[in-house]
Write a protein that binds this DNA or RNA. Structure first.
Lengths: 221, 221
DNA sequence: TTTCGTTTTACGGTTTCCCATAAAAAACAG
DNA sequence: CTGTTTTTTATGGGAAACCGTAAAACGAAA
């Protein structure tokens, strides 16, 4: 059961969102800090007083200002905290959607959950805290999907070219002309169609829109 | 004219790419550092010796290791450097494609150029250095486009819902069913079609693929 | 309630996409 | 060079998307 929570977050707006969510869990007065250094000291002190925190919710990036910090960001904070209280649950609440970065948080820093700051992040935040409260890790859905798909198809230059053209609004039937211009072969419409449907098949996609979204997530385009 | 260049970059591969590009400009032996602290000290020392750098090419994110750094990342480095040599040209070479982050680099940190690490970044790097050499700022094309488009349409919850469904591979003709399920109105296929075509019209897009790519770039989905 | 104006939905024609098949071209081996 | 295999391109039918128009539903005001 999660009772004592510390929030490290320098953005006012994000703070409000987190607070509201926590209220729904009956966690009335979570502790706030706006600097990583403060977070570290609070956790350390609580541990020493025999009143450890159950959960740390932290951002990754913190704006820098005149207060010089030893711990510059969320990543460093997590590393530092793990030294003094390895069992502390950590939920990262950040804007990054780079699958590779998020993946590393789980594998290297051993975090318990990641929620991306987005429109309806309150919902996801709730689900994440609930999951972590049950001693389980919370993986955002889109990450799970990505990890699974990562290795199922490796994109060639050819693939990327076609997909980039699509993302630029070129109609599929006009792609052959563009390929000819760039002297890329094969340039036939059938070849383009076949390639696209093959990619989508291996990735389990049904529509081009899905493929574009995936490639954007992966940073291919 | 750019003669003396310092590169702050901890990734071996990226370093090579930059080096090649610089060679084409006749900048034979640029200086390299793998840590921001080193970059800062080099710039400071050169300035004091009356042999200042003309250009700093830096990454934003630096991997942390056993060497504890005062300056954790490229952003902090830029801030620090601006203190001691405000006129130094700065070109950021990083992987981020978050339009908002990049925009801030220009507006807050006053950088002279940004090039995103991508497949053919050498070309863009060259163009950027050339532009900066002429005392002009280099703006990546896609950023210019985004900034222009940003204000042309503001996305509602409804828009995001539809676009998200598309990105998940739902067929357009099946979207009404999903909207009904979520009790979102209007749910008619015609309304969905009209909404999508309206969005694409205001943004100057022709295809859904383009819209998906744009929304991913903007972090809407 | 009636009327007017707006929003939502339904329908039909055209374009584009999707997919299977076949023809053509290229690559390869003997 | 000939025959075989693979790759690329062409073609056509059916499904989905696109786009304009008209009907229906809804809301507000008289």
């Amino acid at each position: 059961m999660i009772k004592k929570v510390l929030i490290a977050e320098d953005q006012e707006s994000a703070n409000i969102s987190v607070q509201k969510t926590l209220e729904e869990f009956g966690i009335a007065d979570p502790h706030y800090v706006h600097y990583c250094d403060d977070a570290f000291h609070k956790i350390k002190k609580a541990k020493e007083m025999g009143d450890s925190y159950d959960l740390l919710i932290t951002d990754l990036s913190f704006e820098e200002d005149e207060r010089v910090q030893k711990i510059p960001d969320g990543k460093a904070l997590i590393l530092a905290v793990r030294e003094i209280q390895p069992e502390l649950k950590i939920l990262v609440f950040s804007a990054t959607r780079e699958a590779t970065i998020i993946e590393k948080l789980y594998s290297k820093l051993d975090i318990d959950g990641y929620v991306q700051k987005a429109r309806n992040d309150a919902k996801e935040l709730k689900l994440a805290i609930d999951t972590i409260g049950k001693n389980k890790c919370y993986y955002p859905r889109h990450l799970l999907d990505l990890v699974k798909q990562m290795n199922s198809h490796d994109f060639t230059e050819y693939d990327i070219t076609i997909i980039t053209l699509l993302a630029e609004g070129i109609m599929q039937k006009d792609i052959p002309a563009h390929l000819l211009e760039k002297q890329i072969s094969p340039s036939g419409l059938s070849s383009v169609e076949k390639r696209l449907s093959r990619i989508k098949e291996t990735l389990g996609f049904s529509k081009n829109e899905q493929l574009i979204a995936f490639c954007k997530d992966m940073g291919f385009i």
